[in-house]
Design a binder for these strands. Structure first.
Lengths: 360, 360
DNA sequence: GTGAAAGCGCTAACAG
DNA sequence: CTGTTAGCGCTTTCAC
C-alpha cells in the first residue's frame, strides 16, 4: 500500500490564494446557483487554475454521499459480444454524465464477488452485471447497502432489480425458420452443453420453428460438446466448433445446414469445413448467433442472428440510472427483453426449387 | 446526482454492537499487528458479520491517502489487441493485490482527458495508458499531483514515466525476412497513413530487411490509404484492406505476397482476395502484425508477426506498481521494449526452388 | 489492551 | 454575498 507524498493542492490552498473561505471556493467550483459576486468568482477560478487544482472526489463523495459512476462487470473482455454490451452502456451513461467503471470477472465467481465488493466499498451504487455466479449472495449484500442492480442475462432470480434479457427463443426461431425457408431439410445444431438458460431457449426456438415447418429434427441432430471450459481467449468455443464438425461428418448424414450456438463456434465450424474441402455455402450452409464484428470478416461472411448486445446495454444502463435518481423506495423488479434480427450474409445458400412462403 | 438513502452500517454501528470503540474495530478489521485481546477481536468480527458490514473505502482513502488501484486507458475495447494488453495488466495487478480500473477513450482526446482527470480526482495514483493525445498536458497535471504514469506506445515525450514500447522495427524486419526466405521477390505493403511512429518503424524494418535481401522495394510498392478515420468497430481497418487490394490488383504487377499493417487489415485483404477468386496462399501470400485471437480463426489461418501485447501490459504494470510503492523521489524515465516473434500459420506459401538460408 | 480525539478534503446548514 | 462550523467514515497518534 503506497502513500504518495506530493498531495497536491486542496480546497484550502485555493481559498487562501484567492483570499476567501473554503465555502466560497466550494460554491464557485461546484457552479451552484448560490449567489457569489462575479469578482470573487473570477479570482477563485483564477486561483484554482494557477494551482492546477482539481477537487478530491473522495472528500466530496464522502460528504455528499453521492456518486455519479456506475460499474459494469462482464465475464470477459476477450469476447466481442460483451464489448458491444459495454459500448451500449457507455453511450447511455455518457448522455447522463455518468462515468462507467469496467471490470472483468474472468469467468471466476470469486473474482466477480471481489469486483462487486470493490464497487460497494467505493460506494458506487449502480451496477450492470453479466453474472456467472449461480448465487445472488454478493448482489444481495450490494443491494442491502442501497445499491441498484441491472442483471443482463442472468440465470438466477433477484428481486427488485432491472432484468434485461435477449429473446433467445425468437433467435432460435429466426435461424431455423430462415434455413427452412431456403429449402433446408436436414439441419444440425452444434452447441456447448445446454446448461444455461439462453442455450435452452435457443434450442427450444429451433425445435419450435422446425416442428411448424414440418422438418424432422431429433436428439440425434443435436451435437453437444461433452465438456465446458470457457477459456478467456474465446478459443474454447472455436475449438468446439471444429470438433463438432468432425463428429457430424463421421455420421455421414446428408446435412445441408449447421446452426452453431454462437458466432465463434461458427468460426470453428467454417474453418474445419474449409479444411475438409467442403465449400460454404455450396455444400454446407452455416448460421450463427451474436453478430460479432468479425462475423463479417470471414470468408464467406457469416450469416447470423444478431443479438441486441449494445442496445440491451444502453437500455439497461438508462433504466439503472433512472432508478438511481429516483430517490426513496426500491421499485419492484422490472424486466424487458429485446428482439433479435437476421443479419444475412453469405454462408447460407438457397436450395434450388424452393418456393418462398410469405410470413408476417 | 443521486443520494441513496439506505446508507448501510458504519464502523460506528459495528463498534456499538460489539461494545467497543471505533478505534478497536478499525484495528481488528484492518488486521494490524496492533495488540487486541482475542476475545474482543472475536466479538468485533462477529458484529461486523452480523451487520454485513463492509468498510467505506472513501473514508479510508481520504484518511490514509492511499489507494491500491491503478487505471488503464485504452483507445478502444473493440480491438482485441488492447484487450490482450489489459489481460496482461490485470494479471500483474492481481499478483500484487491491486485493482485495475479500465477506461476506454473511444479514440477521443477529450474523453481521454476526462478519464485521466477522473482517475486523478479519485486519487488513483497509477495509470497505464495507450494515449491517442498528441499533448501530454493532462498527464503532466496528473503527475503534478504525484501520479505515476506508464506510457504504452506513445507518440510524445513525457519525462519521469515508464515507457513501454514494441520493437516495431524488428517486427517489420521479421515479416519481410520471412517472405524473402520463402522466395518472394515482389512484395507489397498495405497500410494506413504512415503518421504514427509505430507504422514508420514497421516500414523502416521492412525496407531494411528487403534491402539486405536484395529485393527491390520502392515507393510504388507501398499502398497507403488516403484517409484515416479509425472507427470503433475496427471496421475501418478492415475496409482499408479491401480497398487497397483493389488498387493493388489494378496495378497488374506480379506480386506474390502482401504485408498488411495489422491483422484486421489483413482480414480485409483476405476477404477481398477470396472474392476475386485468388487463392491464399496459392496465388498470393498474406502476412499481418498483432496476432489477435481471430487470426487463427480465418481460412486460411493467418501467418502474422505476434506483438507482445500482454507481456508488455504485465511488465509495464509491474514496474508501475513498483514505482508506486517506492516512496519519495520520482525516478527518471525508464523505457523498455519487447521483442516480437513470428506466428507461422497457413497464409504464406513457399515458392518452389527456394533454398533456405541459415540466419542467426 | 483500549478509548478519545484530531483530522483527511469536502459540502451544506447556519450565521452574519 | 461571505464565512464559520459541523460532520461524512475512517485511521492513527496519544493517553490511560
Amino acid at each position: 500500500m503506497q502513500h504518495r507524498q506530493p498531495k497536491g493542492p486542496t480546497i484550502q490552498d485555493v481559498a487562501s490564494r484567492a483570499g476567501v473561505s473554503i465555502a466560497t471556493v466550494s460554491r464557485v467550483l461546484n457552479n451552484t446557483d448560490y449567489p457569489v459576486s462575479p469578482h470573487v468568482r473570477k479570482s477563485v477560478m483564477q486561483a484554482a487554475r494557477d494551482l492546477h487544482y482539481t477537487p478530491n472526489l473522495l472528500g466530496r463523495m464522502l460528504q455528499s454521499n453521492s456518486n455519479t459512476a456506475i460499474g459494469v462487470i462482464v465475464p470477459t473482455l476477450q469476447n466481442p459480444f460483451f464489448n458491444q454490451v459495454i459500448l451500449g452502456v457507455e453511450s447511455a451513461a455518457r448522455k447522463r454524465d455518468y462515468e462507467v467503471i469496467i471490470y472483468s470477472s474472468h469467468r471466476s465467481v470469486a473474482q466477480e464477488r471481489k469486483n462487486i465488493l470493490s464497487l460497494l466499498q467505493k460506494r458506487v451504487m449502480g451496477l450492470l452485471i453479466v453474472s456467472i455466479d449461480s448465487h445472488p449472495t454478493a448482489l444481495e449484500q450490494y443491494m442491502e447497502y442501497g445499491g441498484r442492480v441491472a442483471l443482463l442475462e442472468s440465470d438466477f432470480k433477484l428481486s427488485a432489480c432491472i432484468l434485461a434479457q435477449t429473446d433467445y427463443f425468437s433467435a432460435g426461431t429466426i435461424a431455423a425458420q430462415y434455413l427452412a425457408d431456403r429449402g433446408h431439410r436436414r439441419i444440425a445444431f452444434l452447441t456447448a452443453p445446454i446448461t444455461k438458460f439462453s442455450r435452452q431457449q435457443i434450442l427450444a426456438g429451433i425445435q419450435d420453428a422446425l416442428r411448424r415447418a414440418e422438418i424432422p429434427f431429433s436428439e440425434a441432430d443435436i451435437f453437444v460438446a461433452n465438456t465446458e471450459a470457457e477459456s478467456d481467449t474465446g478459443m474454447y468455443e472455436f475449438e468446439l466448433g471444429r470438433q463438432l464438425v468432425d463428429q457430424l461428418l463421421q455420421r455421414r448424414e446428408p446435412y445441408s445446414a449447421i446452426i452453431a450456438i454462437n458466432d465463434i463456434t461458427a468460426f470453428g465450424v467454417i474453418q474445419a469445413l474449409n479444411q475438409y474441402g467442403i465449400s460454404i455455402p455450396g455444400q454446407m450452409s452455416v448460421i450463427g448467433f451474436d453478430n460479432i464484428t468479425y462475423s463479417g470478416m470471414l470468408s464467406p461472411p457469416l450469416t447470423t442472428v444478431a443479438l441486441p448486445s449494445s442496445s440491451m446495454g444502453s437500455a439497461a444502463c438508462q433504466m439503472l440510472i433512472d432508478a438511481l435518481n429516483k430517490e426513496g423506495d426500491v421499485p419492484p423488479q422490472v424486466s424487458f427483453s429485446f428482439p433479435c434480427y437476421l443479419e444475412e450474409r453469405q454462408s447460407v445458400r438457397e436450395i434450388p426449387g424452393t418456393q418462398h412462403p410469405f410470413h408476417s
